[in-house]
């Protein structure tokens, strides 16, 4: 129990803001991935990142260990992202392309390598994927993102969302099925 992260949690409880940077460094990519997959917008994702870590610091006394902080951070990031999405009140926020995928990753998107218009198809898939996720109901979207994007287990998601694992499983399967339908021309 003396990993760098565990030490940082303990030092953070004593108000050490330097140690807090270790926590941010450890989870920043995960938080941004959760936020961007829900919101599809860079500015809002950065807002989620700030707010998530600010709330983590404020609540650090309640956090016991590495598993606890991971659950707390993922929960705040997902809930705050969904709050932002609700606050839009139907305002149209475009899915931006400011956050970029490294070229090596773009290649992995679907099996389009040998097609002449592969780049166009990959761009379309990337947009269609974000749109399909954004159209899922909140609980399905949150479950899909926490499981398939972030990699939390169904048990952990049940703890985060305060629901039985059966519900997590059902939401996940429905969400994937909807994505499969909406992306069928690309996959």
């Amino acid at each position: 129990m003396s990993s760098e992260l565990q030490v940082a949690i303990c030092r953070c409880k004593d108000g050490d803001t330097g140690a807090f940077k270790v926590i941010v460094r450890t989870f920043e990519r995960r938080v941004l991935a959760i936020a961007y997959s829900i919101l599809g917008n860079t500015e809002e994702s950065l807002e989620v990142m700030q707010e998530t870590f600010f709330r983590t610091f404020k609540n650090i006394a309640r956090i016991k260990n590495e598993a606890g902080i991971a659950r707390f951070i993922c929960k705040v990031a997902a809930n705050y992202s969904i709050d932002i999405k609700r606050r839009r009140h139907g305002r149209l926020i475009s899915l931006d392309d400011e956050a970029e995928l490294p070229a090596s990753v773009i290649i992995q998107l679907a099996d389009t390598r040998n097609k002449p218009d592969a780049q166009v198809e990959r761009d379309e898939l990337w947009r269609a994927l974000r749109k399909a996720i954004s159209e899922l109901p909140d609980k399905q979207r949150m479950t899909l993102v926490l499981h398939d994007v972030d990699g939390l287990s169904k048990r952990e998601i049940g703890q985060v969302m305060r629901c039985p694992q059966g519900t997590v499983r059902s939401n996940l399967h429905i969400a994937r099925k909807k994505l499969k339908e909406r992306l069928k021309e690309y996959m």
Partner: peptide, 19 residues
Amino acid sequence: ARYRRIIRTLKVFAKLKFP
């Protein structure tokens, strides 16, 4: 295969590069 492709594609969010 289709579900595996969807799950693999979702993983790319973790590799995004922000400005």
